[in-house]
Structures are given as C-alpha cells and as structure tokens.
Amino acid sequence: MNRRRIYSNWFMVPAMAIFTVFFLIPTVISLFFSLTVWNFDSFTFCGLDNFKTFFSDESLYSSIINTMIYAILTCVLKLVLAFFLAVFLTSKIKTKNFLRSVVFFPNLISTVAVGITFSALMHPTKGLINQVITTFGGTSVDWLGNTDIALYSVILTDVWKGVGVATVIFIAGMQSIDKTFYEAAAIDGASAWQRLKAITVPLSRPAMNSVIILSFIGGLRTFDLIWAMTGGGPGYATEVMASTVYKQYAAGYYGLSTAGNVIMFALIALMAFPLQKFLLSKEVD
C-alpha cells in the first residue's frame, strides 16, 4: 500500500516543479528584493524602508481607493449584465448562436486597442459619443479629462470588453441545469420570474462564483486599459496600484516598485481567498 502511494505521488512532481520554478522561487526573490535598493548590477539591503516610502507616497491612498472602486464596480456590473444576457441567450430565440458570437467578440480585441479606440470615441470635441450627444441638443462631456467621471468611463469600457467572457461562463452553467426542474416548475404553475429566482439563480451559483472571483481579481490587477486610456490621469483620478507600481519602476526605483508588487500581491490574496471560501460555502449541493 505504501509503495502504491509513493508511486502515485510521483505524478505530482511535474506540477510541483512548474509551480516551484515559475511561482514559488520568483515570489521569494521578489520578497527579498523588496527589502533592498537594487539595480541590474548590485543591491543594498534597506529593510522596510521601501514599504515606508511606498505608503508615504501621496498617490498611494488614491490608487488603493480607485483600485477598490474599479474592482467592485466592474465585478458587479459584469455579474448582473452577464447573467441577464445569458438568460436571454439560452432562451429559444433563433439567432442566439449569432448573438453569442457578437457578445463575445469584444474579448477578442486587444485591451490596448480597445483603450485607444474608446479614448478617441470619448474625445471631448471630436469623439463620436459627444457628437451624438450634441446632435440631440446635449452638452459635450469630457469623459476622460473630468476627474469626477474619468474612472467610471474606464470602468464602463472594461465592462463592455469583459462582459462576454462572464456571459459565456453563465451560459455554460445554465445549460448544465437539468431541464426537468423547469418542467416540474411549469407544471406547478410557476411563472418565468419564479423559475428564474427558484431554479436558475441557485443552480447557477458555481458559474456566478467563477465570474465574481475572476472579475474581482481582474479589477484589482487592472493596468493595461487604464494606461492606454488615461495613463492614471487626470491627476490621480484613475491611478490604480498597478499603475503606481509601473511609474515607480519606469523612474528607476526598482526596489520600491518591487515592494509595491508585494503589497498588491498581499492585498489580492487577503481579499480573494476569504471571498472564494465564502462563495463556495453558499453553493447549492
């Protein structure tokens, strides 16, 4: 019995080797270099000075708040929109296969390309969105230059691009639900809303949990779309933790930026793991 157990454990070796080389070792190295002032030639140990400097940065508070707003809003909007899109696209409409392709299409486009395109569309004077608004008698809006709405403009762009993946996950979850549940509910006289509330929502919980986790972590890690659209501006209005770390690295503060990456990793881990545990506890067995 013991020999069989040792034999089966050997199958874990390739996965553990990959995990160690590409995750564990880089993590340990990052933790070490976050405690140093380093460049590509040498390093000097400085203890927790990088972390103290990072937390004293005036843009850090704004970046943490913006990151949380971004992660929560993109997660909620994708969750709600994707759920109802999936309900619609799993109904008996004839063009549902074509519409599924249309919904998923934005995800195939490069994030940077999406950012550049929407930056042009949201231009305060020449953008198509403002031209449509002024055509109907409205006033032009500085979508990306107004500190009050710039972050929300990027959030809506992110939702437009990412809702397709969430919809596909929901469609897969809904199609796995046994049709006899709906048939029994229909025989009992349940309305469409009652079937949605009592059957679709609880039995789609695994798909829902996947969407929440992926969207939330993606929001916490966001960088490329914000950088392509606003570069973190105007001011610190759209500054997030990833863009703050990038700016420190671009300025040559490698140890400081490494410390920022460690902080971001810890923040994501401390929020994602408890959230996942809570969501899994709510799944229907």
Rank of each mutant, 00 (worst) to 15 (best):
M229R: 02
A86H: 04
A166H: 02
E283L: 05
A207N: 04
V80C: 06
D57T: 07
F223I: 06
I263A: 10
M174S: 06
F40C: 02
V80F: 13
F51E: 05
N9P: 01
N50A: 09
A228Y: 01
S30C: 09
I65R: 15
P26Y: 13
F84R: 10
V103S: 06
F83I: 12
I93V: 14
L156T: 08
F273N: 05
F45Y: 15
G189Q: 11
S63E: 05
L144P: 00
V76L: 13
K179Y: 14
I6N: 12
P202G: 11
N39T: 13
G162F: 02
Y182T: 01
I109Q: 09
I6Y: 10
I177K: 05
K94M: 04
T27A: 09
A17P: 07
A266K: 00
N50S: 11
I129A: 04
D142P: 04
A250Q: 15
K126C: 02
N39K: 12
G127N: 06
M1V: 06
A71D: 04
P26M: 13
I169K: 01
E283W: 03
I133V: 15
F43P: 00
F84H: 14
F216N: 00
D57R: 08
H123N: 15
L79P: 09
R100A: 03
G189V: 12
F181I: 03
T222K: 02
R221N: 11
A186Y: 11
K92D: 08
K179H: 13
Y254W: 07
T147Q: 13
V103W: 00
G47Q: 08
A198V: 08
Q194L: 11
C46A: 13
P206L: 00
L196W: 12
G127D: 02
Q276P: 01
F223E: 05
I116M: 15
L196M: 13
L275G: 04
K96G: 01
L275S: 05
G233W: 05
D188I: 05
V28F: 15
G173V: 01
L156C: 12
G138W: 07
L79S: 06
S110M: 14
S281D: 12
A17W: 14
Y249P: 00
P234L: 08
V132S: 08
L203I: 01
E283D: 14
M271K: 07
G252N: 04
V211R: 03
T230H: 03
F84V: 07
Y246V: 11
A251T: 12
N261E: 10
A185F: 07
T117R: 03
S56P: 00
A237P: 00
A242W: 07
S119Y: 10
W143F: 11
T111L: 13
G233V: 10
D178H: 08
F216Q: 02
V141I: 14
V102E: 04
G137H: 12
F273Y: 15
A185I: 13
F88L: 14
S59P: 01
V163D: 05
D49C: 02
V284W: 07
G164W: 03
V76H: 05
F84T: 15
Y236V: 13
N146L: 08
D49F: 04
V284Y: 10
P234H: 07
G138M: 10
L203K: 03
F278M: 14
Q276R: 10
G47D: 11
G145F: 12
W10M: 15
L156E: 10
F51W: 14
S204R: 00
I213V: 13
T200N: 03
T157F: 01
I171G: 00
E183T: 09
T117G: 02
K78D: 07
G164V: 05
T157S: 09
M12T: 04
